[in-house]
Every structure is written in structure tokens, then in C-alpha cells.
């Protein structure tokens, strides 16, 4: 992967966090965007990620922005998360949010075939907009807990990801299953790319 130039980096003071670093930690700011049809669970994933909670949500209006600090042993991530609305009427504004993103999560709902098709459209759109190769792209099949209603198999998701050179993960925002793994999967390449 090429050197990431847009990502600002600084050697700041030790950040408070669960880990007590033994040497100066690096701080990496990373812009992350969540894309995918309405109702696939983008906001729920974001909530699970930031607060480790799951609760009823209403459709996102426009876009929700928040920041999240993640401390690893020798690096601190400042995530700027853009949780976009999946509704079609907001489609025209989404380029604002994925432009310059360091990580893009394209989410579908494993119990809704339609959302998987939409995910592929999102991938095509991202390609069209010259998302640099350094962008960490992840295909996420959410609602893994609904396996009995599964319309998109793990295998299908996986092969699409391999095909397009994306990371892939099946998660459940509801149970929390694989969500922290997902974040780690993003952190590593973000960190490694510099």
C-alpha cells in the first residue's frame, strides 16, 4: 500500500486509555464512512462500536458524525466516523462523506438480498470516484444473528470481497459478535500504511 499523505500524524502526549503505553504513542486521525442501504444496521454498528450498546434506532437523517478514540498499545486512533443515511433521497449528498475517507465500510443485511445488490452499487460508485488504493475498504454483512433468515450466504459475501480486493466480515450489531474484530481489522492496515 502506498504512503498515506492525507492522514495527519503527530506525536502527542500520552493519551489516557485502557492501556498504559511504555513509550510515546502515535496518534492517527482517520476518517471512516459507513455506507449501505437504509436499515442494514450502519447506525447500530456505529453505536456498538462507540458505546458497545444496541438499542432501537430510527433511520438516520442526512448523516451523523461522531468521533471515537481507540487506544492500542502503541498507537491511538482518532476516528472521525460518518454514519450516512441509506435512504435514496440522501444519495446525492453522500460523496461529501466518502470523499477523503481512509476507511469505507460498505454494509449489507444478510437477511435482505436487495441490500447486497445495493452494496455492489456502492462499491461501483466508490470505484468511479477514484477512491485511492490506500483506502481501507471493508464489506460488512450485518445482522449475522438472523442466520435463519439468511438470503446472502457467508460464501457469497466472501467471494465478492475477494473479487474486489476488500476486507470482509460478517457481524451482528445486535449481539456484538465480530464488531470489535471488524474494528481491529480496519486498524491494522490503517496503521501499517504509514
Amino acid at each position: 500500500m502506498g504512503k498515506r499523505t492525507r492522514m495527519r500524524e503527530s506525536t502527542g502526549p500520552r493519551s489516557p486509555g485502557p492501556t498504559t503505553p511504555t513509550r510515546d504513542t502515535r496518534t492517527i486521525r482517520a476518517k471512516m464512512v459507513l455506507l449501505g442501504s437504509s436499515g442494514v444496521g450502519k447506525s447500530s454498528l456505529a453505536l456498538r462500536f462507540s458505546k458497545d450498546e444496541f438499542k432501537g434506532t430510527l433511520p438516520t437523517v442526512g448523516c451523523a458524525y461522531f468521533t471515537q478514540v481507540v487506544c492500542l498499545s502503541d498507537v491511538t486512533f482518532h476516528f472521525e466516523i460518518w454514519d450516512t443515511a441509506g435512504q435514496e433521497k440522501y444519495h446525492s449528498v453522500t460523496p461529501l462523506y466518502y470523499r477523503g475517507a481512509h476507511a469505507a465500510l460498505v454494509v449489507y443485511d444478510i437477511s435482505k438480498r436487495e441490500s447486497f445488490i445495493r452494496a455492489q452499487m456502492w462499491l461501483r460508485e466508490l470505484e468511479k470516484h477514484y477512491i485511492p488504493a490506500s483506502t481501507v475498504m471493508v464489506l460488512v454483512g450485518n445482522k449475522g444473528d438472523l442466520s435463519e433468515l439468511c438470503q446472502v450466504t457467508l460464501q457469497e459475501g466472501h467471494s465478492l470481497a475477494v473479487d474486489r480486493g476488500l476486507l470482509f466480515m460478517e457481524t451482528s450489531a445486535k449481539s456484538g459478535n465480530q464488531v470489535s474484530e471488524l474494528m481491529l481489522a480496519i486498524d491494522r492496515p490503517l496503521e501499517g500504511s504509514r
Binding site: S43, A46, L47, S50, G56, T57, L58, P59, T60, V61, G62, C63, A64, Y65, F66, I81, D83, A85, Y90
Partner: peptide
């Protein structure tokens, strides 16, 4: 409810 979590921009 989405404005509760973070900042909304619409």
C-alpha cells in the same frame, strides 16, 4: 433519534 448520537448534518 439520530441526532442523539453525535452531530447530525442534513
Amino acid at each position: 433519534s439520530s441526532f442523539r448520537e453525535g452531530e447530525g448534518w442534513t
